[in-house]
Amino acid sequence: MKHTKIYPDARAALDGLLRNDMLIAAGGFGLCGIPELLIAAIRDSGVTGLTVASNNAGVDGFGLGVLLETRQVKKMISSYVGENAEFMRQYLAGELELEFNPQGTLAERMRAGGAGIPGFYTKTGVGTVIAEGKEHHDFDGETYILERGLVADLAIVKAWKADPSGNVIFRKTARNFNLPAATCGKVCVAEVEEIVPLGSLEPDHIHLPGIYVHRIVQGPHEKRIEQRTTRKRETV
């Protein structure tokens, strides 16, 4: 039987990959480019004690917010707590562990992990609580702190197009954390809007080579708007 990276649905794409107490890297920024189908499948699987590395946790009732509501997440590695009241409530109540990372640092931790780099030095966070307990080193008279590369048990990402080999194109700002998150996972599952024939993607347009992507699932996406701002139509 010929092996394929394409799976019929999100549940099948995660089959055999999920376990309690694992570390998951999730792409997306707010509700932009989030792997909503895979998140829902993780919720339905019932796994618990998860550590999730993601810029934020979506919003209440959607995105990673659904895993907080079901108490399947024990720790978030994130840059931003806003937009999610349950995230804030659990953190302030001491029910959820939170490792704050500046956004650039978190992105670089994922990228470094995917590139096989165990750690790097940065000035970001020096002199703040971010630097507490971390190694300090001076370079050219400036103080830097050591940040560790992040390697996840599983990466879940959302993309625009993929071919059967797993070559992926992200769409505009939905690329965000999806690219570094995908590379830092020991296994990467990508949900996409469209699977196109092999050879139809222009090589120079591919953002993520198929060597990083182990499983693909195509499906309909709700793609909610995080904050809808409107104004009255002006009349002439």
Rank of each mutant, 00 (worst) to 15 (best):
M1I: 12
M1Q: 13
H3R: 13
I6D: 05
Y7M: 14
D9H: 08
D9S: 08
A13E: 02
D15M: 11
G16M: 06
L18A: 03
N20Y: 08
M22G: 06
I24A: 10
G27M: 04
L31S: 05
G33M: 05
I34Q: 05
I34H: 07
I34E: 09
P35S: 02
P35V: 06
R43E: 04
G46K: 02
V47L: 01
G49Y: 10
T51P: 00
S54M: 05
N55L: 14
N56K: 07
V59F: 07
G61R: 00
G61C: 00
F62L: 09
G65Y: 06
V66G: 04
L68Q: 04
T70N: 11
T70Y: 13
R71A: 15
V73I: 14
K75V: 02
S78A: 15
S79G: 15
G82A: 15
E83H: 12
F87M: 10
F87R: 00
A93P: 05
G94S: 04
E95N: 09
L96S: 08
Q103R: 13
Q103V: 07
T105S: 14
L106W: 08
A107P: 08
P118G: 04
Y121R: 10
G125W: 00
V126R: 04
V126F: 01
I130N: 11
A131P: 05
G133M: 06
G133E: 03
G133F: 01
H137L: 14
H137Y: 12
H137M: 14
D138N: 12
E142C: 11
E147K: 08
G149N: 02
A152E: 11
I156A: 02
I156N: 00
V157P: 08
V157F: 01
P164G: 06
N167Y: 09
R175Q: 12
P180M: 06
A182T: 01
T183W: 03
T183M: 12
G185W: 00
E193G: 15
P197T: 06
P197R: 06
G199A: 06
H205R: 08
H205D: 13
P209K: 12
I211A: 15
H214V: 10
R215L: 06
Q218S: 12
G219K: 00
G219L: 02
R224A: 03
R233V: 15
R233C: 13
E234D: 11
T235Q: 13
